[in-house]
Design a binder for these strands. Structure first.
Lengths: 205, 205
DNA sequence: GTCTATATTCAGATAGAC
DNA sequence: GTCTATCTGAATATAGAC
């Protein structure tokens, strides 16, 4: 692990480079040469540290997929009110993607294009407990008469759709609207509150 | 065009095969051999009919991108009320994707991974008039006091997000919820009305 | 651990017979 | 128009010196 220092350094330089290239190009589009260049080493080193392209990819994918739903369970377990839970999840989720705009498309795309690899590693990376918790929380709120009846699955889908999709569709949005990166960024900042209120507005009684 | 018959037949067999393979695997992941196999011809034929892989891809991409927003302008020009316009756009959009589940991810992904190719061909395929029309229609509805004030861009993003994202996230949704294809299909059918009402509920005064 | 050189495999593209 | 055989280049992976 941290035995030498030089080793670890090279290894982490490779991982950093691989993360960049895989997330930007995907498994099929990534080139080992490209990863080597960005890590400022040569191709042989890649295979010295990691058996092959696929192994390296799985590592990056698992790590990335693990970041997709950060600390949501914690938020759901907190003693915030239901609406505030929605507000905080939406806000922190969009912020995560402002920081890593490629993240949602990368994960979705690889799970579609490489089902075996994707499924296996996503499953290992993800603690899917938060979905169950979220559903329960929604059902309770319905029982309490706080919100209108709705299939929890649809509500969850609506929420993550509105958070994630704009990042996936960014190039299309820029083309259709003529906006630039900075304006896009502003829009996404606005959505941190807008999306939550849009949802709450719709379901509150 | 329709000169011979055999020619046209081979050409359209290639296009059918290419559509399948490109949409499923993407430009980087697609193999000419794979396309040839599905078209039940050999690789040489591909290059006889189409100069190279990229040309063939651009053709398919342009054609596909053109299907992304079907007859929305017509709907927006109709004399339906604003809410009914939303209802019909949502419904027909989701139906389009029930028919072609790979469509949204394919277009979004290629525009991200191959910006030059994507941008150029998307632009040619798309009449972006409907966005302007939609924005205007929303602004009028706000002026009339029919709906609450909202940045039209956000409303449009919300709408298409909720329509398209579940298809992009399908493998993840199946994994996180444990549902199967048939149930997924049912959920999407439900969303044809649910999403529209969710939106209307949120913005109506 | 790191490098250069090389092997190997794969995929896009072409030549040329029919 | 269609096919078989082949070329070429690219990309992954390995051998072996230092």
């Amino acid at each position: 692990m941290t035995r030498k220092g030089k080793d670890t350094n090279t290894e982490s330089k490779i991982l950093d480079a691989a993360r960049q290239v895989f997330i930007e190009k995907g498994l099929a589009g990534a080139r080992m040469q490209d990863i080597a260049d960005r890590a400022e080493i040569n191709k042989a080193m890649l295979h010295y540290y990691f058996k092959n392209k696929e192994m390296l990819f799985e590592l990056i994918f698992r790590e990335t997929a693990g970041k997709l739903f950060p600390h949501f369970e914690m938020l759901l377990d907190s003693d915030l009110g239901f609406f505030d839970k929605i507000r905080s999840i939406v806000s922190s989720y969009i912020e995560t993607m402002v920081q890593n705009p490629y993240l949602p498309l990368f994960v979705m795309n690889e799970m579609n294009k490489n089902p075996e690899i994707g499924m296996k590693n996503f499953f290992e990376a993800q603690k899917p407990g938060f979905v169950k918790k979220f559903r329960a929380s929604i059902e309770v709120s319905i029982q309490e008469g706080l919100i209108q009846p709705i299939n929890p699955l649809h509500l969850i889908m609506n929420m993550f759709s509105m958070c994630a999709f704009p990042f996936i569709a960014k190039p299309m949005i820029k083309l259709l609207t003529g906006i630039e990166d900075e304006q896009f960024r502003n829009l996404m900042d606005q959505r941190k509150v807008l999306v939550a209120e849009f949802i709450i507005n719709s379901i509150r009684k």
